[in-house]
Amino acid sequence: MEIRPLTIDGAWLVTPRHHGDDPGLFLEWYQAETFAAAVGRPFPLAQSNISISGRGVVRGIHLVDLPPGQDKYITCVSGAVLDVVVDLRLGSPTFGRWEAVRLDDANRHAVHLDAGLGHAFCALTEPATVVYLCSSPYDPAAERTVNPMDPDLAIDWPEGPLRMSPRDAGAPSVAQARQAGVLPAYVPRHPGR
């Protein structure tokens, strides 16, 4: 398993080790010791989720209040998604930037996000199944959303008709979320990166 940082502090791309033979494929997509050595701390698993979406569905941008925060470890086990990390941490040197990574059932990559980072994805296939490991349980009172179509973010979503839930489509812009005081503060966790 190889883990390398993305350009946003607290976001990591994970390339699992594949063991294939004629009957199929076995993946080591998470190893606690390797993860902790690369990221600098263990990943405390509290909940796992599965999201199934049709082509063109955009989910997010979601984040959780700090505290409690929620680290996420995400992969696409069937189909393909454009997975997007958005830095919404006030005071971060990369505040307002985003980075996209293709997650699919061929490359088998995963992404790890520190608490405080925003997360979204767009399903590229019909359907796409995304699996999340989360460091804290779901708490609707602590979850925040930012509109994935915010022109100030200018995320380069795929061409074609896109669909969102009413909640995501009606989410505030980054500026509105900032004004409402719901964006987290940046706390560097990976000095020297």
Rank of each mutant, 00 (worst) to 15 (best):
F95R: 01
L133P: 00
D87C: 08
V146L: 02
A120F: 13
A154K: 01
E143K: 04
A142Q: 15
E126D: 15
V85E: 08
P137S: 09
V130K: 00
A141N: 09
F121G: 13
L103P: 11
N147F: 04
Y132R: 00
D104I: 12
A128G: 03
D104V: 13
Y138P: 10
V146C: 01
L117Y: 14
L90R: 15
G91S: 03
A106Y: 13
Y138C: 10
P161N: 04
T129G: 06
D114Q: 07
H109R: 15
L90T: 14
A110K: 06
L162V: 00
D104Y: 15
D139E: 14
P158S: 00
D83T: 07
P161K: 06
L162D: 09
E126I: 01
L117A: 13
L88K: 00
L113H: 13
P137C: 08
M149D: 09
V86K: 02
T94F: 06
D139R: 14
A106H: 15
D150W: 09
G160H: 07
H109Y: 15
T145E: 10
Y132M: 00
N147W: 06
R89A: 04
P148D: 01
S135N: 03
A110H: 13
M149C: 13
I155L: 09
A100D: 08
P137H: 10
P148I: 01
Y132Q: 01
A100K: 05
F121D: 11
A100Q: 12
A120C: 11
C122W: 12
A120L: 08
Y132G: 02
P158L: 01
G91H: 06
L90W: 00
G116D: 12
C122T: 11
Y132T: 05
V85Q: 05
C134F: 02
V85F: 13
E159C: 04
A100R: 05
A106G: 15
C122V: 12
V111H: 08
V130H: 04
E99V: 15
G96T: 02
L113P: 14
A128W: 06
V130Q: 01
P148T: 01
P151N: 02
I155R: 02
V84L: 06
L113N: 12
A115G: 15
S92G: 05
P140R: 09
D156A: 15
A128F: 07
V131S: 05
A128Y: 06
T145H: 14
V111S: 07
V131P: 00
Y138N: 11
A110Q: 15
D104R: 12
D150G: 11
R102S: 08
A123H: 02
E143Y: 07
L124E: 15
V101H: 12
S92Y: 03
E159G: 13
